[in-house]
Amino acid sequence: MSQHSKNNYVISADIGGTHITAAVVDLEKKIIIEDTRTRISVDSQGAATEILENWSSALIQACQKFGSPAHQVALAMPGPFDYKNGISLIKDLHKYEAIYGLNIKSYLSEVLKIEAEDVLFRNDAEAFLQGEVLAGAGTGFRKVLGITLGTGFGSALSFDGITKDLNLGSEPYQDSIADDYFSTRWFLRQYYELTGLSVSGVSGLTSMVKHNPVVTDIFEEFTANLSLFLKHIIRAEKPDVIVIGGNIAKASNLFLNGLIDQLAGYVENVKIRMALLGEDAALMGAAAGFATKAGRGFSFAPVKDTNFNTQS
């Protein structure tokens, strides 16, 4: 055992569609140890060996920066995934298909030389929302609906501090599923269909918005689709607030006001807040699993309530 207590430190990681971010979380002080933060690009359509080596490399680098071996590892992972047993079930989602059926828990246990029971997985949308409820835009609300807009469409619901994945991305929508409409690939496909041109990402679209009315049209269609989809879950769950995160949320100036206006036509008293913590939300939310496992409460110091995009 190292000089650091096993129970107080977690190597936490957020698995994205194009990267992994890892850092050490101090459960006792309830902080992310900044100088351990490590980010590595990952080709989610690459070979299994390449993907797993990038993931383990980020975790090892965070450990090295911390100056201590990892004894507990928590990962915020996109689904579908067997979170208890650590087995990837991702297929037909244009990402991480090479690791389908692989036991990631066993792999990381062997590479990091820790017990398999000390490797925890949590749905990434669930971890994101747990972090925002603990320390960000969801703090102080009893019932929070969280959605993440990025490589995929994530969703979770938090009630009295207990957060669960909703998996709305798999719900039917129009001629497919919600994940196909509320993710980066929808934007890229729409732009290609309308212009015959390719663009590297949503950030590429936003950079053209002032000079290209097609981009405005695409965001208006996205807004209309998202409001239509969300109205049913909002009516059913009646959340106190909706928290929106993910890389597409960085373009909120192009859809937030329209989303608020359109949702107001379907449900009363809609309150929307943009996520505050970025990747830190998922890192915090994943690490919190060890505090829950140990039977102790876990909350970070709340972020000051500033720069919210809200509507009551």
Rank of each mutant, 00 (worst) to 15 (best):
E221I: 10
V215Y: 03
A224Y: 12
F229C: 07
T223C: 11
W186G: 02
T216H: 11
N212P: 06
V214P: 03
L194R: 13
L197R: 09
T223N: 08
K210F: 10
D217Y: 05
I233L: 05
L205T: 02
R185F: 08
F187N: 04
K231I: 04
D217C: 08
G204E: 01
T216E: 15
L230Q: 08
F229G: 09
F229W: 10
Y191H: 08
Q190A: 15
S203D: 13
K231D: 15
K210Q: 15
G204A: 04
T216S: 14
T223H: 11
V199A: 06
L197Q: 14
V202L: 02
F219V: 03
F222Q: 03
W186K: 03
V202T: 09
K210H: 12
R185L: 07
L228T: 12
G204T: 00
S198W: 04
T206V: 14
H232Y: 12
S198T: 12
E193S: 11
T216Q: 14
V214R: 04
S200R: 10
Y191Q: 07
E221T: 12
G204W: 00
F219S: 04
P213M: 11
E220W: 07
D217P: 00
G201D: 15
G204Y: 00
G201E: 05
G196P: 07
T223Q: 07
V209S: 14
S198D: 14
V202D: 01
L228R: 13
L197E: 15
G201C: 14
N225V: 04
L230I: 10
T195A: 10
F187S: 03
F187K: 01
L226F: 13
V209E: 13
S198C: 07
V209C: 08
G204K: 01
W186F: 09
L194I: 03
N225M: 07
E220K: 13
L226H: 11
L197H: 13
